[in-house]
Design a protein around this nucleic acid. Sequence first.
RNA 1: GCCCAGGUGGUGGAAUCGGUAGACACGCAGGACUUAAAAUCCUGUGGCUUCACGGCUGUGCGGGUUCAAGUCCCGCCCUGGGUACCA
Length: 917
Amino acid sequence: MSQYDHKKIEKDWQKEWANNQTFKAENTSDKPKYYVLDMFPYPSGAGLHVGHPLGYIASDIVARYKRNKGFNVLHPMGYDAFGLPAEQYAIQTGQHPAITTEENIKRYKEQLDRIGFSFDWSREIRTSDPNYYKWTQWIFIQLFNSWYNPQTDKAESISELVSTFEKQGYQSEELQFTSEEWIGFDEKKKSDILLQFRLAFLSETMVNWCPALGSVLANDEIKDGVSERGGYPVERKLMYQWSLRISAYAERLLQGLNTLDWTESIKDSQRNWIGKSEGCSIVFEGDEALPNSLEVFTTRPDTIFGVSYMAIAPEHELLNDLCVVEYREAALQYAEKAKNRSERERQSEVKNITGAFTGSYVNHPFTGKKIPIWIADYVLGGYGTGAVMAVPAHDARDYSFAKHFGLPILEVVQGGDVSIEVYEAKQGKIINSNFLNGLEVKEAIKAAIKAVEDKKIGKGKTNYRLRDAVFGRQRYWGEPIPVYYENGIPKTFDEKDLPLVLPEIDKYLPTETGEPPLSRAKEWTYNGYPIETTTMPGWAGSSWYFLRYMDAQNENCLLSKETVDYWQNIDLYVGGSEHATGHLLYFRFWTKFLHDIGVVPFDEPAKKLVNQGMIQGISSIIHRVNNTNKFVSVGLKNNFETSSVYIDISLVKNNEVDVEGLKKWRPSEFENAEFEFENGLFLASAEVGKMSKRWHNVVNPDDVCNEYGADTLRLYEMFLGPLQDAKPWSTQGIEGVLRFLRKLWRLFHQGENESFLLPDTEPTKSELKILHKTIKKATEDIENFSFNTSVSAFMVCVNELQDLKCNKKQILEPLIVLLSPYAPHICEELWRQAGHKESIVYANWPQFNPEFLVENEFNYPISFNGKVRFNLLFALDKDLKEIENEVLANEQTLKYLEGKPAKKVIVVKGKIVNVVI
RNA sequence: GCCCAGGUGGUGGAAUCGGUAGACACGCAGGACUUAAAAUCCUGUGGCUUCACGGCUGUGCGGGUUCAAGUCCCGCCCUGGGUACCA
């Protein structure tokens, strides 16, 4: 073979790797371990586009590099196979989602295989496989049987809690009973109490209900007030639901972030999402007309003397009692209206200030002054106590509310001018505040909390924004929840009866009465009792999948202790940053829980996280003259009223449309259309956006592999720019990468008839320098995830070796080992041609030797006032003072000095000389 | 509004510690080989100016620190992403 034939090479090696199970990882080894994982894909019907493999290529390079470095590498892949699109398709066509999913997975697998990934497919998992979701259900049962002990700060068995109840009863603000009372409670009462402790629990909660999808959604499944999938409106609705008590882990989820090598922006997102705020609760007693007291949470107890009104949420439980007769009707009407406003309306009307006075008052705990109670929709029912003490002078929302309704604004912190604008900074001296006067804000907060605690009207408290996660979905295509109801009491399945397999049903829609699809299942009972009909959300299976890869076939347990002790947690996790507050939080939560119950020895799933950027598509738009079948080239569109039509990008080159192709693409739409050209061309306009079928701008990696090869695709995706950046896909430049591989090939085929030739002659110093420069760069760049710059280093290396006509074994063999993580097929082929019997996959990574890079002279740039004018060669060990003298004596220097004396000369060894005039 | 990332040639991007801005690649222009094409190779390529040597200018904008700033500091503008009344 003399020509570089990527098709043949890539096909042959992919077959050979599969046959030899080259990438199979052993669960026991003397080698150090390295676990590198990609976020697994949801196998959609559209197949992979060129954006999907970006992260996979990066992680594959790392996986291959680590193998060359002598690590035992775990690099698996699987499918997040439960999900909405397959179910929507099932509703429309009656096709079972399992069939659609199977077909999609097959296609994904074929596409992935063509790119030459080094996955260990023997460990493949699918979340929809009963052998997998058996363990998802098992984890659910453990969550149900656990509670969070704030004393030990970990999850513990619920049966131990029950025995404490039996011995000592329970005392807290919300709940009190003695051991005798507990023993006397009936089963239902006990169950209800325990549900308040279980980590998987049923409760009446306000949920995000999406009527179009017929299901509830978690907060992170909603974007801009509509469902993330499908974009349907979402309402708030009170439902009896399964939830997971992630809030119990809020502090640990927050603290754990400090130990992780993740980007600051992802960690910040999680910190914001968890939303820790420290402050204090304060009870305001009602005046004589009002027997009720009102509890608020505030982070600014220092401003307590600035309170001018109380604001309660429209959902507040005391609302009814607080509304006095003369304001009652108006107030309740307002509350009703505010409550029923959808998320979307609430958002779009943020600037619209609304509220209503209840007519009642509380007394200020320190001044005794009467403070009016208002209903305001900017107060949220679900956070804190659903009531706030409003301090208009030092809170922006209170400020605008007070301005709008003419309520007093009392300055208590110095530093701003509250007659003009709000002063929110936590800085300045306290004034008008009795015993807090003169203190700085920080001291005043402490003093105020102490005063509140001394008075026994409240105490220091920490709140978290993080809500418990709603876990039940009114859908078919998800894991069944292994719970049955014995006389209305929820009980979990016996572990030996798992998996609870999804039943066959005739239709995938909710029932006419609004029950989830599973209630269509016949004889859906356990020991004669009805089974839970909601299923788990999409994030259930993905919250622990990384563990199952370690021991994918284990039938006896989730994974064996030996395997998890060996593999530990993920060393490198690669995936999109869009999972910042969803998957990545649940995934950490489940890991911490599994740690608490002794399943895993670590409490964070992934040490390092790298987010690849999105590869965007470039869509092409042509312009149709409104109400006609006439299309005009883009330069003419301003002469008409036009609307945009997206066309397939394959029909467009450099914005020029292949009109004949267009007619064939959609004959019904374009065959008889009229086209108006400009300068003989029909031009489209371009737009950068998400790659999607909808915009006809999807580029399939298969096509790129056919035309250029998988090695070129891999190198090109890395060469496009930094891994983390978003970038539009364009094939401009892909030719350069293919040219580079051909050049590499020719280095090995310089003989007669371009036959393979690799002489084992001693390399020269300059050849060794080129090689070792590349070893250094390639190694550092992989460690820094700077793949784009290492590709250019390879190009530089090949260009320089080509100039030297170097084809020496001692240079080229190490080079292809360096390149093999990026372009595995061609390197494997050249490696075998060089006579190696073993795969390059396990070849040793070349050792960098700095001696080859040692220079003894340097061509100093000579600059004058910072402007470089010329260069002079000096030995690196030359005395700096001598360099200075020689520079000043140089005749070119005299020219730039223009007869003036040099004020100062700076000589930086090996860097630069600067003459200051 | 708040948080995060970013702004460098015609294009993608490089410059890892404050030290020759534009590596590498695309595109473009010119040339070599060829009957021709493909492939390959060579030369040039930030802008302005100059026959040329060279000069001036240049990393979103305005200031500053420094012998020296794409890089550090202050103040703005713009783009992309996240988040949204969390008291």
